[in-house]
Design a protein around this nucleic acid. Sequence first.
DNA 1: CTTTTTGCGGAACGGTCGTTCCAGTATATA
DNA 2: TATATACTGGAACGACCGTTCCGCAAAAAG
Lengths: 191, 191
Amino acid sequence: MGRHQTFDTAEVVRAARKVFWEHGYEDASIPDLEAATGLKRSSIYHAFDSKRGLFDAAVNSYLDEVVRPRIRPLITEPVSPDAIVEYLAGLRAALRQAGSFHAENGCLLINAAGAPIAHDAAVRESVAAYRAELHAAIRSGIAARFPERPAGEVDRLAETCTALVVATFALTRVDADAAVGSLDAAVRLLG
Amino acid sequence: MGRHQTFDTAEVVRAARKVFWEHGYEDASIPDLEAATGLKRSSIYHAFDSKRGLFDAAVNSYLDEVVRPRIRPLITEPVSPDAIVEYLAGLRAALRQAGSFHAENGCLLINAAGAPIAHDAAVRESVAAYRAELHAAIRSGIAARFPERPAGEVDRLAETCTALVVATFALTRVDADAAVGSLDAAVRLLG
DNA sequence: CTTTTTGCGGAACGGTCGTTCCAGTATATA
DNA sequence: TATATACTGGAACGACCGTTCCGCAAAAAG
C-alpha cells in the first residue's frame, strides 16, 4: 500500500548536515537545504517535521559518522598508547590543509555553542553531551598512554587536553594558526 | 548650527552591546536594539549607518570597557607575579555565580567566532586580533610569574593558557561546569 | 486493472527582518 | 528674532524567512 520513499534518508541528512555545518543553523535557509538535499520543502517537512527536526537529525548524523569514528580508537579495548597522539595528529592534518571543509568550518557542535540556536536548552544539552563524550574518550586515551600515572593526574590531563581541543574547534574559523597552536599545545602535553 | 545629539553615544553603545552580547548579532533585532537604547530606528541609522555599524561600535566598546580593563594588570609594568592567577581568579568568580550576565553569555567575541557573522572577514579579523591581544597579555603575566624560565617555555605556557581561556568562553553558555573546569586547568598550570 | 496509500511539486501564507524616506521639531548660530 | 541645521518619530518598503496546504503522480495491495 502506497509508494515508498524515493530518497535515501541518511544521504539527505548528510547533505543537510553539510549545510548546517557550513552556515550554522540560522543561516541555513530552506532553499539552501532544498538545493543541497535535492528535496522540495514539502518532502523535507513531511520527513522531518521542521527545520529543527532536520537539524537534530544532522546532529545525530554528525555524531555517528564524524565524531565517533574519530574517537573510537580511544575507547575500544585494547587502546593503543599512541591512540591519543594519533587522534590529535589526525585532527591537525584535517585542519592544516587550508580550504578544506574541516579547516573552514571547524566543529558543527562547538560552532552551535556560541550561536543563537544555543539558547535552546535541548541544543545546549547536545553540545554538553558531545563535550562529555569527547572528554571521556580523551581520558581513556590518556590513561592508555600513561598507565602508571594515578587517576587524578590522568583526569587533570584529560580536562586540559579536552579544553585544548575545544579551543581548537572554537578558533578554526577565525584563526587557523591559533587553532593549530592549541592542538600543538595538547600534543606537547602528551609527548 | 543645528541641534545636538540628545543621547550619550557611549551609553547607547553600551546598551546595544548588552543586546548583541546576549542574543548574538543575528538574533539582535532592530526592535530589540530600539528598546534597549531608547532610540528609534532613524536615530540609530543616522548615528551608526547600519546594524552592522552599531555592532562594530559595540565590539570596540566591549574591548575598551570589558576586555582591556581586565587584562591591564597583566601588561602595565611592573607586572605582579600574581597578576595572572588573579586574572584567572577574577574570571572564575565572574563565571561562577549562576544567572549572572557573564555566566549566561560568555564572551561577545568568542560567541561571534562560531556564529554566522563570522563569515564576514572583518569580524573574523576582530576576533583573531582579540585573541592575539589576550594571548600577549597572558604571556606578559606568565613571564612576570616565572622570570627565570626561558622565553620558549613561557611562550608554550602562554599558548596553552590562552587556549584554556578561549575554551572557557566557548563553553560558558552550554556547560558552566566544564567552562570553570577549563579555567581551573589553567590555574593548575601556573600554580 | 482497480483501489488505496503516500510521497512529491509548487504556489501561497503570515510574519519579521534590515533599511529607507519624509515630515516635524528642537536648537545653535547669526 | 530669523534662519539654517540635523536629530527625531513614525510609517512604509521590498525581501526573505519557516511553514502550510492542496492537487497530482507513483506504486504497493487486492
